[in-house]
Design a protein around this nucleic acid. Structure first.
Lengths: 342, 342
DNA sequence: TTGAAAGCGGTACCAA
DNA sequence: TTGGTACCGCTTTCAA
């Protein structure tokens, strides 16, 4: 299978017996072309297996049809889902995604941005940057390339940002538990240095206050995302505060561990019936990255950020910015979704 | 922040007081350039904030520095990890990844391949295709673009393929359990239509035979990737075959469910001591996609395919194919890694 | 060691 | 409705 000579519009023009400009017009659907010529050109394209070279077309001034994406950690389900949503939406429009990975540091990001710019992307999305962004914004603006941020918390102040509503998510979850009759609700997991967590805890706390329910700082427990640690932590928490009737878990791992911990505690105290296995006296709520999680067999109320839809929204947003320069940069907030386990 | 005039090598040449060809030479490090001129050019580049337009450079004949990746499902941890590894390795070389998503059907793949080709990629990787690939291979070969497949099982016969060694993985896991003294080992999970599963079951079965251990087809149980179903299935399995002392689980969800099932069974039979919680009489082994799983607190022997390293290897392989056309296409097999839980 | 100029594959303006 | 042609930004002979 030898490498065939590259097929260009010249070849197509020759085969169709027209000029290159005509071929170009047919390809882009512009100009008024007689259907006869159009037909002949398309036949030639088909026959020769011609694929249009977008680099050349972009070079001349058109759009490249490519969006650059710099994502902090593809391995995290949240970003994986977001990326999937973004590429899906973009592909549906015949556009593509340039994927760059990692880079928390400002200069690394800048370098990656340059890579994208040098490839002639139409727009850039940075998912999961935490640091400030002035330099980045300037560089992109200088090149006339729109830049949009997507993150999990409200780090950036001036940039065009899409982010989940962490407070509202925590409120929804807390309210759900309250409506289920819980009055003494604790918090388990996360690191107090996390902004996402801070926003969530804020929502939790505000909701308690709103309903006139007690808030104790000892009921907000930090914990690594390890099942074992979570199991131990919830055990200790309940031992010291036996009146707690519901616990909000910071993420899946914490929730799993908490559930184990409850089971163990139940057994040890000998208070639980035979089928307490799927039925606890302490209710759990939890934040989860992805809805279709393998853990959704658990009797837990999950609240999730629709990461895939964030991807769709991002696609819309960046396309708007690309197509109309008058779109104002601003913050857009994505609401969370409650999933009540069986 | 107005859009500054685009800066080209012409501007750089002007600023440095040399010709464009000289600038080009300096940029690509070719030609013999006096260090004085080189310095002046680099200064100008720095000052103007020039970024080289790779589309133009690729158009003229150079490489684009871009690898196309079509991945079946980014949302699967395995492919996410693989993608992360690939981009990481490629970025380290100053190259980039075009990400395309989905497309199991042959014509969808073909269409996506065309998108990549039209962007002038240097090579294409398809991760997770199951169908045959003749058309794809031809199309790529016709364009002179190397094509490499990465998959989880040996679907493709003639193509250049990288894949995990499912048989060996199953062998390792089975042998591990045997060395731990288990003689009656069952299999739980997966769908019999899955080729990956077939390869794994093959390895499991072969190892049993090799050690002269009993194999019963009733001990190989199909099961959806649901915790609840897995818990029920393992319960039924052990009820009917109480002599089974170890179970190999097809994936994480199955393993989790199996573990629950064991716990429940233990409680119901009342045979287990108080701390049987982390200590079962039936041992579990499991396949897992990603090593650093939240589940690794469980006392389970995991076997994982090093997906990230598969990404690195893929990067190497495609680069070889790009740089030297004499590299033979062939199958390359990635060994698995055993992780013995605490 | 450096410069001039001819493309790479398209697009789009201006004529015909 | 079509064709001719000057570019887009860069690389690469070939001369100077």
């Amino acid at each position: 299978m030898a490498v065939a000579k590259k097929i260009t519009i010249n070849d197509v023009a020759l085969a169709a017996g027209v000029s290159v400009s005509t071929v170009s017009l047919v390809l882009s659907g512009k100009g008024r072309i007689s259907s006869a010529t159009g037909q002949r050109v398309n036949d030639a394209v088909e026959q020769l297996g011609f694929v249009r070279n977008r680099q050349a077309s972009a070079l001349r001034g058109g759009q490249s049809g490519v969006i650059g994406l710099i994502v902090r950690d593809l391995t995290s389900p949240f970003y994986a889902e977001l990326t999937a949503g973004l590429t899906e939406a973009l592909e549906a429009q015949g556009r593509m995604v340039f994927l760059l990975h990692g880079g928390r540091e400002a200069d690394q990001l800048l370098q990656r941005l340059d890579m994208l710019l040098s490839q002639g992307v139409d727009g850039v999305i940075i998912a999961g940057a935490s640091g400030l962004s002035n330099e980045l914004c300037e560089r992109a603006a200088q090149k006339g390339v729109p830049l949009v941020f997507a993150s999990r918390a409200s780090y950036l102040d001036e940039a065009d940002t899409l982010r989940p509503d962490n407070m509202q998510a925590a409120q929804m979850l807390t309210e759900h538990l309250i409506r289920r009759g819980h009055q003494r609700i604790a918090w388990l997991g996360g690191n107090s240095a996390s902004l996402t967590r801070a926003e969530r805890v804020g929502g939790y706390c505000a909701t308690l206050l709103k309903y006139g329910l007690p808030f104790h700082s000892e009921w907000v427990v930090e914990c690594d995302a390890s099942q074992k640690k979570a199991a131990e932590a919830i055990g200790a928490l309940l031992r010291h505060n036996p009146t707690i009737s519901a616990v909000i878990c910071y993420n899946e791992a914490i929730a799993m561990g908490a559930w184990f911990g409850l089971m163990r505690a139940g057994r040890q105290s000998g208070e639980v019936g035979v089928d307490a296995f799927f039925d606890h006296q302490v209710a759990l709520g939890a934040f989860a990255d992805v809805p279709e999680n393998a853990l959704d067999d658990l009797p837990i109320a999950w609240i999730t950020t629709p990461a895939r839809e964030m991807g769709y929204t991002l696609a819309d947003r960046i396309m708007q910015r690309i197509e109309r320069s008058d779109v104002a940069a601003g913050h857009q907030i994505v609401p969370a979704r409650l999933v009540v386990g069986r």
